[in-house]
Design a protein around this nucleic acid. Structure first.
Lengths: 223, 223
DNA sequence: CAATAATTTCACAAAGTTATCACAATGATT
DNA sequence: AATCATTGTGATAACTTTGTGAAATTATTG
């Protein structure tokens, strides 16, 4: 689940947010000003930042600007007044949303979910290659030897997962978790069917998806 | 020759700049704060702005942000300390250069020439083409095979977004975020209806808006 | 304030995808 | 070689998503 960095100089505010978010399964990390926040941000992987504007030392604007020099991590501003947002927005420092204090638990949780959902897969290059297979994740296009191949949703996501973790063996359960989602219920044999169709559609290159007997499947360019 | 708007609260500074620039053939207009500057900017055609950061009423940051809402006119900031520039640059408010006070006549003239040279023709027409579709964003006009097509607001903005990111797949939520705004509440199926009408209005070319089953839509000239 | 246009919602039809099953084929074990 | 477990495969029913026309709602314009 996602890790959220909460930056606010008020301890009560940080704890309130943590109280809302942790039951949802988010991991929360706190920092009491911009400098501490930057330190935490450098130290570990952060999926989203909740950021107060008014803070000692390094304020929210400047913090955001520093972070934006090296990352497109989603940032939600916490503002006391909505016209503070005008400034954030007008300055185009790349904030993703804002929440005006005081806020309700639902609002915070909803905004966090919404921002994570819409920023998912927005950054970085999205092109993967393996042998004759070329996958463009953003465009959701696949070619084999330059010829386009049309994949269904599940086939595509399986292939992307394999390409992102070449050589790693996945059990059927792991594939179901990561492509279908953790709430999937049903037969693990479903995976087999999708592997089958994927192999057929990839043609020759389909052999790169290898069966690991008694375990699961892996994508491997070597034998 | 070019017209330059000088905005600074110190009369001596404005006159100094004018003294440097007029011999070079530039026409200079003065304003003593951001508000007066905006008024001048609205009143006549300006080719470049020399802008002090520290000013009463409307400071340089805010002035710049206002101007950028409606114009890409080149702006050169005048700063007393170089770390003020860090802020301007980091905030990405679209400044073109900066000059640290005190400055030499040569420096000012050289920077102004350089910026004008560099930005010349940048104002470009905002024209996009794809197949038989031609979109003029500024004029908000669309033609297909040379024939004008009348689009509604949402249809137009969808089309422009698609053209700006050809090939990229957008989920319905992403489209709602970027065309309707991040705080839109309502059915995601609304998107479908607008896609439908847009496709119909574009005729043959409507096929370029492709459905990506289980994900969303993309604009793609290839298959 | 009426008229018009634009947008959203809804319900149903159409299209496409996915899950499951049964049986065949294959690999491992004795 | 025989047995058992696992994997491959084709068919199809169940399900999800998308397209579409019409109605309801909202916004804009004269």
């Amino acid at each position: 689940m996602a890790t959220i960095l909460i930056i606010d100089d008020e301890k009560e505010m940080r704890e309130l947010l943590r109280l809302y978010l942790e039951p949802e399964g988010f991991t929360c990390i706190e920092a009491d000003d911009g400098e501490a926040g930057l330190a935490e941000f450098g130290r570990r992987h952060i999926d989203l930042i909740l950021l107060d504007i008014m803070m000692p030392k390094l304020d929210g604007y400047r913090f955001c600007m520093h972070v934006r020099e090296r990352s497109q991590v989603p940032i939600i501003f916490l503002t006391a007044r909505s016209d503070e947002w005008d400034r954030v927005y007008g300055l185009k420092i790349g904030a993703d949303d804002y929440i005006v204090k005081p806020f309700s638990p639902n609002e915070v949780v909803a905004r966090v979910h919404a921002v994570l959902r819409r920023t998912k897969g927005t950054d970085a290059t999205s092109q993967y290659e393996a042998g004759s297979i070329v996958v463009d994740e953003k465009a959701r296009k696949v070619t084999v030897n330059g010829k386009p191949v049309v994949l269904t949703l599940k086939e595509f996501e399986l292939l992307v997962l394999f390409l992102k973790h070449r050589g790693q063996v996945f059990t059927r359960e792991q594939l179901l978790d990561r492509v279908w989602g953790i709430h999937y219920v049903g037969s693990t044999r479903t995976v087999d069917t999708h592997i089958k169709t994927l192999r057929i559609k990839l043609g020759e290159a389909g052999q790169l998806i290898q069966t690991v007997w008694g375990v699961g499947y892996k994508f491997d360019e070597t034998i």
